[in-house]
Design a binder for these strands. Sequence first.
DNA 1: GCCCAGGGTGTTT
DNA 2: AAACACCATGGG
Length: 264
Amino acid sequence: MQLTQKELSLKDTLPSGQCFRFSEDNGTWTVKSGVAENCRTLRVRQEDLSPITDDPYWSEFFDLETDYESLKKDFSKVSPLMAQACAYAPGIRILNQDTWEALCGFVVSQNNNIKRIMGIVERMCSFYGNGGFPSVKSLANAKEDDLRSLGLGFRAPYIVNTARAVYDGLIDFEVLKNVDIDEARGMLMTVKGIGPKVADCALLFGFHRLDCFPMDVWMKRVMATCFAGQDKSIFGPCAGVAQQYLFHFARTSGYFDEPDCKEN
DNA sequence: GCCCAGGGTGTTT
DNA sequence: AAACACCATGGG
């Protein structure tokens, strides 16, 4: 399979707040995914994406099966701003990540910034995962003080709660994958420390539920400013994909620095 | 010093 | 149900 930068942009996809274990050095990207001994490492450059196209695991990770050209075409009809967001970074894709890693990572993300999230996750991987992401069991048995020493702060008990809920079977990924989206959301939110935003991010990036539409501070800004009185339904059944284009555009383009953009 | 960050919980109106 | 304080921590 041939891929162009328009179809997959590493620089627009990896640092767009979906995943927290990647780095870039002189054009070479390193991505890690998965728990402990099953952790995989990808090294790839934009000029040669064959390490992704030749490997089924990474092809799925970067969601190569979904037709993003078709989605962007439909999104662009919604409004000029949506069209602008699609054109701004057309190579964004929704990552299909390890479920547990995504869920846990977005518990870390709350009231936090992406740079610091990445540092915390990296320290968690060193401390508990021998370089891979910490297993459910290791975090279910973790001491809160250890987690606080890694920088988790008030999120420390939330991590333990989440891990225990999964370890004890209260949260069952196989069940969550097969139930209605609102039910899945509700089940995740029974954990103290998982609210609507974290649940939506986990479902979008860890369960590949493309209709989930996480509303963080940036998306609240976008919707209030440019889609007042409307909701995710205007973007159709894959609204979560539109959300990622809007999120990345809002956060990196500077467009929303001075809110004079009502009519778009 | 202040405000913010891919928020959530608990309490007060 | 909507508004608010509070939560740890580092960067601007």
